[in-house]
Simulated assay, not measured.
Amino acid sequence: MTTSHRPAFRANYAQLQAAQKSSKGAPIYSLLVNRPLGRVFAAAAHRLGMTPDQVTVISAVCTFTGIALIALVPPSLPLALAVTVTLVLGYALDAADGQLARLRGGGSLTGEWLDHVIDSFKIATLHLAVLISMYRFFDVAPLWLLVPLLFAAVYVIHFFGMLLTDLLTRNARLRLGLGRETPQAGSSVMSLLKLPTDYGLLCLSFLLLAYPPAFLWFYLLLTVANAGYTLLVIGVWYKRLRNLDAELAAQ
């Protein structure tokens, strides 16, 4: 299909704006920055005739460029800007691929698989890159090197727990004949409270690489906040699945 036969950018953007995902549980950065920026990229990508997988790959290139820079280049203002821009772009494009799939009439199993595999790669390597940077370029006590290791463990646990809970919940609801949960509007207060756990805030935190001591302490704060949130949400997930178990047993 030629460019002249594709919907205009404004039409694509308006269609996406009218068909957004539920804001339930979404942190404020995702709501105010990442999803709107993703809509812009998705509308432009559709106009250019790109596929969701192509957008996913570009997102991965941006993200892994930023991760490589963290591990390989000493902290400085230029590095801080480069890492932040590449990670923010990668995150926005990660939001764009799903929106582009909706514009094209729906996604695919392979597209969802590719998206989650790249997310897993990102989660597994980002904090290890911070660990390498601390070891090579920061004048810190050895105890500080445990912080990115803890953050990496927390991120993997949270990501896997979230995916598994969602999968088991959907399967249980189908067995109960309930279908998908009805999307609900999220609380703005909860969105704000969840900001420390938002990947977008983590992306922006790398601006502090221009002043390494500030980055260290802010990174530690994010580690503690994410660890605390993960412990709390694991309890919520467990109770949700216990309730579904009870409903299944009562059938």
Rank of each mutant, 00 (worst) to 15 (best):
F206I: 07
L128M: 10
P213G: 08
H116G: 04
P36M: 07
S187Y: 13
W144Q: 00
L204E: 06
N34M: 09
P7D: 02
F206L: 12
L37M: 14
E112T: 03
R240A: 12
E247H: 12
Y229Q: 12
R47L: 14
A82L: 14
G107R: 02
L93T: 01
V57E: 02
G106C: 04
N34C: 05
V85N: 06
L174S: 12
R175Y: 03
G228T: 07
L193W: 14
Y135L: 12
L79A: 08
V233H: 13
A250V: 04
Q99I: 00
P142D: 03
R242A: 15
V57G: 01
L231I: 13
G49K: 06
L231M: 15
L241E: 04
F9R: 01
H5K: 12
P74E: 10
L128A: 05
C62S: 13
L93S: 03
G177T: 11
G111A: 00
T110Y: 11
L109S: 02
G105E: 00
L77R: 08
L81D: 09
D245M: 08
L220N: 04
V154K: 05
L145M: 07
A68P: 07
G107T: 01
L174E: 15
K239L: 14
M50Y: 13
A225G: 07
P213H: 09
W217A: 04
L32Y: 12
A249D: 14
L79H: 10
G25W: 06
P148G: 04
G105M: 04
Q184L: 15
L131N: 00
A71I: 08
Y91W: 03
V156Q: 10
P78R: 11
A68L: 14
Y238C: 04
L232W: 15
A71G: 14
Q17F: 01
L48I: 02
Q184I: 11
R240K: 15
R10K: 08
A246H: 11
I28E: 01
L192N: 09
L69I: 14
V61K: 02
L126R: 03
V236R: 13
L114S: 01
L100K: 05
H5I: 02
K21G: 00
W237Q: 13
R104S: 07
F151Q: 10
A60W: 07
V83K: 05
I234H: 11
Q251D: 06
Y135N: 10
A14I: 02
A43G: 06
L208A: 15
V57A: 11
A129W: 01
